[in-house]
Design a protein around this nucleic acid. Structure first.
Lengths: 174, 174
DNA sequence: TCGCGAATGTATACACTGCGCACATTAGGA
DNA sequence: TCCTAATGTGCGCAGTGTATACATTCGCGA
């Protein structure tokens, strides 16, 4: 009782911007490799287990929002890349920096705007359709295999460079 | 009471070969796209929720066994493939036929024998290390992107062929 | 044939999850 | 100032993984 409503320091009944806080908390869980549960997200945000439902229909909706945010971040980085090799390195680096998020992004049937933007950027840098698919598959495959620990590798960045040089560059030139 | 123990028709207290039945049930769940839970596996095998623990340490152990079986099947098919293009098509076809199993196989930190065999077969068909990684990443990327619905595609097999032709063939020749 | 120990399944129980429903608290406009 | 909608909380249910105690049955030696 007597919780000060307008005070900035003390926790008041209403959070203020729980929607954003939930996204941050969710991202935190993913990046820390902890088990992702709605309750854990709520705990991180310092709120009751059911509070998230005021902002997201269900767990899946929160996950989709997180995936969207992830694609946005990835698209930003890709857009700032000068050439194909840089894009490849940035793509893989993103995956390795945010394994949980990256897996989430691709592990669900999403058709949101951020995803479309990412695909568009990827497509805009390669001429022919077959090469488009090939370049993307190559880089995505590298990222996924590295994430899953299927490639013994001490220097992922170097691996990306050499693979791109061995496979992608000759193909583009052909 | 009075359950006939040796009768083949009537269910007896002991299952007979629950270990194998659990694998089959698990594979069935994965292939049918149903939610995978130990209890669901037990239900499919017509056995109590905790019976599986007599044969597998925990859920993870069952999943690992299933993944191992999956890699065995994949390795068999790859081994029977004559050339690189065929291997690529077989790899992707396997993934599309058994989405749940394929995701399981790669979605866990496994180091079992079946996996090693698969990797060896993959490696044995390509000369240089960079090409090895590249070929595998390309094909794996195709499989994963197709599974995740990130490639609009009516004929996956044709997509694999054209991508291999556009990317892999020039690289091998170079 | 008997009987006993080991193997195998079952029953019960607990903590945790996603989520539906009723309720409490609060903010902001009339 | 009061009323209403927005936002959080509490409680409850079904389903999950798993530990523990118990029941049933098989196989083997006497």
């Amino acid at each position: 009782m007597c919780a000060v409503s307008t005070s900035p320091g003390g926790r008041s009944y209403h959070h203020g911007d729980l929607r954003a806080a939930l996204l941050d908390a969710g991202l935190g869980l993913l990046d820390d490799g902890e088990a992702f549960s709605l309750r854990a997200v709520a705990r991180r945000a310092g709120v009751s287990p059911n509070a998230p439902y005021r902002h997201y229909e269900d767990k899946d909706a929160l996950l989709s929002a997180l995936a969207g945010r992830g694609f946005d971040g990835l698209a930003d980085r890709l857009e700032a890349s000068a050439d194909l090799e840089t894009m490849a390195r940035v793509y893989v680096a993103f995956a390795l920096e945010h394994p949980g998020l990256f897996r989430l992004m691709y592990g669900r049937p999403t058709a949101n705007a951020a995803w479309a933007r990412t695909a568009e950027i990827l497509a805009s840098r390669v001429a022919t359709p077959a090469l488009r698919v090939g370049a993307w598959a190559l880089v995505h495959g590298l990222a996924v295999l590295l994430l899953d620990g299927k490639l013994e590798c001490t220097d992922p960045d170097a691996l990306v460079r050499s693979t791109v040089a061995a496979v992608l560059t000759p193909a583009v030139r052909a």
